[in-house]
Nucleic acid binder design. Sequence first.
DNA 1: TGTAAAGTTGCAATCCATGCAATAATCGCT
DNA 2: AGCGATTATTGCATGGATTGCAACTTTACA
Lengths: 216, 216
Amino acid sequence: MSESRAVGLRERKRARTSSAIHNAAVHLVLERGFDAATIDAISERADVSTRTFFNYFPSKEDAVLGIDEAAISGELDKPREAPDDLFLAVFDLLYALFEAGGGKHDDPDLTREVIQRHPQLMTRQMLRVAEVEGRLSEIVAEWMAGDPRFAADSEAERLDEARIVIGICMATVRVSMKKWASERNAGAADADGSVDPRKTYERSITTLRTVLERLS
Amino acid sequence: MSESRAVGLRERKRARTSSAIHNAAVHLVLERGFDAATIDAISERADVSTRTFFNYFPSKEDAVLGIDEAAISGELDKPREAPDDLFLAVFDLLYALFEAGGGKHDDPDLTREVIQRHPQLMTRQMLRVAEVEGRLSEIVAEWMAGDPRFAADSEAERLDEARIVIGICMATVRVSMKKWASERNAGAADADGSVDPRKTYERSITTLRTVLERLS
DNA sequence: TGTAAAGTTGCAATCCATGCAATAATCGCT
DNA sequence: AGCGATTATTGCATGGATTGCAACTTTACA
């Protein structure tokens, strides 16, 4: 009664349960491997029934990644204005999507770790983006419409071009994540024992620009 | 006795069975949809046991696509020489992989049709390529080594760059396939009622070059 | 406090996938 | 043609993933 908070008990409980399942999934998969970590075991550790597991996540992959569809939709619906640097903007958009879709973990680094160890999870990540490609390409095409280099194109052309740009950025992100993982394994770590994903990420963008310069 | 053919009965039979399963899968999925076409039903139509189905394909997706791992490996092992045009060469390589991996259908157009209608199949296609990415990027990096624009790079740098080039080409191929599908639905067909996939494909390469020119 | 809405759970059913062992077909060689 | 070795097919059993349904519990809110 003292505070009239916007979120009720129901909503908080839901968030806690979701988080519990996600964390149980991450830890169990790291402990036993992806296949050996059954949904039964994950549910048990999260203290919910197997049935409830599926009320929160449609699959084991999604649980491990902690995918939050609502957050992804929300991120896509944010108003945006045309950026200066198209590539950078697309990268940021992708990054935001990744964060929004699975950004409330107990330990984000642990989630990265599990993704690194189980490539199928990175695949699932890419798939997530593919699922919203239509929406994504509209945003990017919109940006292009205000760019003098693309302004003369038809809308359909811009959509095609947007899709290609997104594909290019996704490919770069993928390479970046793999690189980050391997550097991490190789022990090229900072003082705190972890490699900064952001640095790897930025280096990959540089590589992309190099390639584009040389090939165009 | 008359001819000493290299392939024995066993091998021919295997090819026929594989083909039978693949075709049954394609037709059933087109008739009933992906989920409703159970492996039981596919196996029955192909006249093999369910167990045998899994002796040929590890999953329904693979059966529908008619994926032939041996052919893919073979394609990758072919000797190649450095090309003039890097992009074109990578596109051809990807194209060859797709063909090799599922190129012996009764009706290739039908296979394209089923891929178009069920996006999860295109995803699986992309995954296939991702699985051999290591091998692929070695080939492309090798090409780059002979290219003056990349000759000065270290081997590791070239591998990264190769991965990005491959990603770019894959993205373009994907866009191309989607475009082909939608044009097909829109009825923009040739006299024989089908759209030439090659044409769409080449148009997408043109789009890619346009984008690269403008963005670099 | 009482009714509506939302969440949880158990249960049953279906499908996908894999290992194993028995049986059958093909191969390669004599 | 005949025979042991190899490979293929199949049935069976098992286990995990996933979904619908209905009963029951909790939370929301007037």
